[in-house]
Design a protein around this nucleic acid. Structure first.
Length: 120
DNA sequence: AACTTGACGAGGG
DNA sequence: CCCCTCGCCAAGT
């Protein structure tokens, strides 16, 4: 059995990704932690590799704020430009500020109050 | 069954 | 910052 073809395994991942609003992003590891049991950053990335079905795949990046699709299914340039047109700003080195753009689903917000960068 | 490869991540130099 | 090492775990050879 192959998890990429196992809908019961992939669906929870896609459900979360479909909930990310435009202009926001989530990381592979973050999704794995939320799903818990049986999911790891690697397997989430593996599932995303075969995403289709209207899933906004471009909103999932790695924990360093960088796009990881290089030379694979989709070129980084495409993922990055799609996010930029949604308002996400990238540094010269291709990194975006997770403190500003990372999305937390309802019930998974990090525990403290507003961050300095969000007060303005 | 052994070994290599990743849309990964944390930690150290 | 960049680079390397490990831990991770499913897939492909």
């Amino acid at each position: 059995m192959n998890i990429v073809n196992d809908k019961t395994y992939r669906e929870p991942v896609f459900e979360i990704v479909r909930g990310i609003p435009a202009g926001k992003v989530m990381t592979y590891g973050q999704i794995a932690i939320i799903l818990g049991e049986g999911y790891t950053a690697r397997t989430v990335g593996y599932v995303m590799h075969g995403s289709d079905e209207g899933v906004p795949w471009q909103r999932v990046i790695n924990s360093q704020g960088k796009c990881s699709t290089d030379k694979l299914t989709m070129p980084v340039s495409l993922q990055r430009s799609m996010l930029e047109s949604a308002g996400v700003i990238f540094s010269k080195k291709g990194k975006c500020d997770l403190g500003v753009y990372q999305w937390f689903p309802e019930g998974f917000e990090p525990d403290e109050g507003p961050q300095p960068s969000l007060l303005f």
